[in-house]
């Protein structure tokens, strides 16, 4: 039993470390490239909505950045998940090991990357003279945990289903793009018309992203969204696990 836990821990850390190493080994540019992406988005949205359309949000740059970085983590992990089992075909066909750890390691690699991009967010927070609150110390781990649980459930489901329907990845890309515009990231949730307000509660990502932004801008949580986000995370994990369990016995056949 003790060895089993030890083994899971080693498996998870070794695979995650491998991905992080590979990502950063070739260049420090690997780091710069992936913070360049959300920063470029922030720039585009700033021009479009602040300069051109004159959106009424104060500190709009940091408003964008505090949502775009966690979003980038989510969408990277989800989009990458379609290829995970597919890319490890000859391993899955031969070795009987806990393959449910594979999507988790990709996700943790992206989580690590998000963590090391927090200094960039901090830099903007300082530039905008927003006070950094102590609540970050527990706020960041709590939100990260919720996001990991939620994304893991989705990644398990997508990576499993994609083995049987190989065009799933295209659908996933369309879906994450749609979801991005339905989530209050480049607009505040208060701008959503009254009659659609309640729909926010149905969007698990909105619960998370609103809280990320509140944390970075004000050092606060919206506890209602926090619990809702946690609830969605558990649902996602449950469904993802059930789909994985149902399909995984056939992985070696279909690969």
């Amino acid at each position: 039993m003790k060895r089993q836990i030890r083994y899971y821990f080693d498996l998870l850390t070794t695979l995650t470390k491998k991905e992080i190493k590979v990502r950063y080994r070739n260049s420090i540019l690997g780091y710069l490239w992936s913070i360049a992406n959300p920063l470029a988005f922030a720039f585009v949205f700033y021009i479009a909505f602040k300069v051109v359309m004159k959106i009424d949000v104060e500190n709009y740059t940091i408003f964008l950045i505090s949502g775009l970085f966690p979003w980038q983590w989510f969408s990277n992990s989800v989009n990458a998940s379609s290829g995970i089992f597919l890319g490890n075909a000859n391993l899955i066909k031969k070795v009987n090991f806990p393959i449910s750890t594979l999507p988790l390691t990709t996700l943790l690699n992206d989580a690590f990357h998000f963590l090391v991009s927090i200094p960039v967010i901090t830099l903007f927070v300082i530039l905008y003279k927003i006070p950094i609150k102590l609540s970050w110390i527990y706020g960041i781990p709590i939100l990260m945990l919720i996001q990991i649980l939620f994304t893991y459930g989705i990644a398990l489901a997508i990576s499993s289903i994609n083995l049987f329907f190989r065009d799933m990845e295209r659908l996933v890309i369309i879906f994450t793009t749609l979801l991005f515009y339905f989530t209050p990231i480049f607009y505040p949730e208060t701008m959503i018309p009254q009659k659609y307000q309640s729909l926010i509660n149905l969007n698990p990502l909105a619960c998370l992203m609103i809280n990320w932004r509140m944390l970075f801008l004000k050092g606060e949580f919206n506890s209602e969204y926090l619990f809702l986000g946690f609830f969605y995370a558990l649902i996602s994990l449950l469904i993802g696990y059930l789909i994985f369990r149902r399909l995984s016995i056939r992985f070696a056949e279909v690969l």
Binding site: L11, T14, V22
Partner: peptide, 17 residues
């Protein structure tokens, strides 16, 4: 991309050690 040494560890873990 990993060295032979790093791959020994990786492979060993996948085999259940």
């Amino acid at each position: 991309e990993l060295s032979g040494r790093e791959n020994i560890v990786l492979n060993g873990i996948l085999l259940g050690f």
